[in-house]
Every structure is written in structure tokens, then in C-alpha cells.
């Protein structure tokens, strides 16, 4: 398939990936103060995936204790460094443990396990090196209009600044082949890592595509989400990171 295809048409039908592929896949979950929901999220993922890596990003609640008793692998940042830093830690750990495929999954319960297979299948088959989840190709549940506008502006920003024709710029559900994970290193510690990641994908010239996924917004996940002020801060840090390497 040609590289950098945008949003291939995918059926919403369930995709089933061989268990052997799942067993070579590491699911990385970055968590910060997610102690109340983490166990349930990890339990759900571990129904299908053996290798779940939780990176506790210096939480002040019981997140790490939950992680070490529920996940196969638990890592802890001694101090909070941000989601980008935590994901990169998890990815590096997965590579060191011999992961063939790496999936990033949010800790707040927004993602569905069945979508992971749909992201994994094109990468496992060798068609793409990177698959990115898109809620705007798929579906959203309880997405407030303010958040929709903010995400829309994020997409616009990505199209202009990153020059990548994405439909969803900041979706935490992604899948990487080992080759892609080895070539891409996230250096943006905080939420601006999502924009940096898109830059890195473009520069790496690896084949990628978007896959429709469903995002479930709950009261909990909305409370944990980014405010408009935070969005401006992300833009500032992202621009500065492009000026100052």
C-alpha cells in the first residue's frame, strides 16, 4: 500500500488479530493519578494482551500500587514529567523487552479494547508501520461541543503547522511497529508530544494511516481532560520546541 495514506476506508466490523500477534504486542499506558480507574482499564486490556506496561508518571495517589498489582509491568517516574515523557519511557521499556508491536492506550477508560485489534491488524500485516486512532472517522460518545471545537482547532493546527492531513490530531490510541518505535523518540514531555509525534512520523517517512475508533467520554475523563487554557499552553510549548531544539 502507498505510504502516508489518509484515512483509508475501514469497516466498523470487528477485526480479530491472532493471539500470537497480541502476545508480541506491548500495550503502554501512561497514568497520572488514575488510581480509581486504572485497575479496571488494565484488567480489560489484559483480557487480550499479555504485555501491559503501566508507567506511573509520579502520581500522588495509589496509581503505582494499583499498577504493580494489576499490570504485567509497572514503572514509576519519581517525579511527574508529563504524558509524553511517560509514553516514551513505556515505549523504550517495550523495545528493551523485545516488543514487535507497541500500542499506546489511555488510562482513563476512554478507549475500547476492540479498537486495539483494528489498529494492530494493518501494522501486524506489514501494510503500515503506524496506525493512528481517529474519533472523527469513528464515533464519540458524550463528546461536548466545546471539546469538539477545541479538537477541531487542533486538527486545523496540525494540518497547517505539521502539514499532515489528519482528521484527529490528539488521539491517544496509536500503534507502532518495532521499526517505527525505534525511529521515533518523543522529546516533548507534556501534552505537546502529540504534535511532536506527528512531526516525527512525517519526518520518518514511514507508512501510516488513520483508523476509525470510538472514544467514550465519561464525567471522569472529561474532568481529567485538557482545558482551553491548557491548549494554548500546549501550542506555546510546541512552537518553542520548534524554535529551540
Amino acid at each position: 500500500m502507498p505510504p502516508n495514506e489518509t484515512a483509508p476506508t475501514k469497516t466498523q466490523a470487528a477485526t480479530v488479530v491472532a493471539q500470537a500477534v497480541r502476545d508480541r504486542t506491548f500495550v503502554v499506558i501512561a497514568a497520572y493519578n488514575e488510581g480509581s480507574v486504572l485497575a479496571e482499564v488494565v484488567r480489560e486490556v489484559q483480557r487480550s494482551f499479555l504485555n501491559v506496561v503501566v508507567v506511573d508518571d509520579g502520581s500522588t495517589d495509589e496509581t503505582f500500587n494499583v499498577a504493580r498489582h494489576s499490570a504485567r509491568y509497572a514503572l514509576r517516574h519519581a517525579v511527574n514529567r508529563g504524558q509524553g515523557a511517560a509514553l516514551q519511557t513505556g515505549i523504550e521499556f517495550a523495545l528493551l523487552r523485545g516488543a514487535a508491536f507497541i500500542v499506546t492506550f489511555d488510562a482513563d477508560g476512554q478507549h475500547r479494547l476492540e479498537d486495539v485489534d483494528r489498529l494492530l491488524e494493518p501494522v501486524a500485516s506489514g501494510s503500515y508501520d503506524i496506525t493512528l486512532g481517529s474519533r472523527f472517522l469513528g464515533a464519540t460518545v458524550n463528546l461536548p461541543w466545546t471539546r469538539r471545537v477545541m479538537l477541531g482547532l487542533g486538527v486545523l493546527f496540525t494540518r497547517i503547522v505539521n502539514r499532515m492531513p489528519l482528521t484527529d490530531a490528539h488521539n491517544g490510541l496509536r500503534c507502532f511497529s518495532r521499526r517505527a518505535a525505534e525511529q521515533i523518540t518523543i522529546t516533548a514531555d507534556r501534552m505537546e508530544h502529540a504534535s511532536e509525534l506527528i512531526d516525527l512520523i512525517r519526518k520518518a517517512k514511514l507508512p501510516w494511516c488513520e483508523i476509525p475508533v470510538e472514544i467514550r467520554y465519561t464525567e471522569y475523563s472529561l474532568a481529567k481532560g485538557q482545558s482551553s487554557g491548557a491548549a494554548l499552553r500546549i501550542v506555546f510549548h510546541y512552537i518553542m520546541s520548534r524554535i529551540v531544539r
Binding site: 504485567r72 514509576r76 519511557t89 523504550e92
Partner: peptide, 18 residues
């Protein structure tokens, strides 16, 4: 912080059990 986290990773052979 990453280096320390990688060095002190905890593995649970039977995740989910206490």
C-alpha cells in the same frame, strides 16, 4: 527519571493476582 524508572521496573508474573 526515565533511567531510574527503567532500572526499577516491576514485573508481575501473574498480573491481577495480589
Amino acid at each position: 527519571v526515565r533511567h531510574v524508572a527503567l532500572m526499577q521496573a516491576v514485573e508481575s508474573p501473574t498480573p491481577g493476582s495480589s
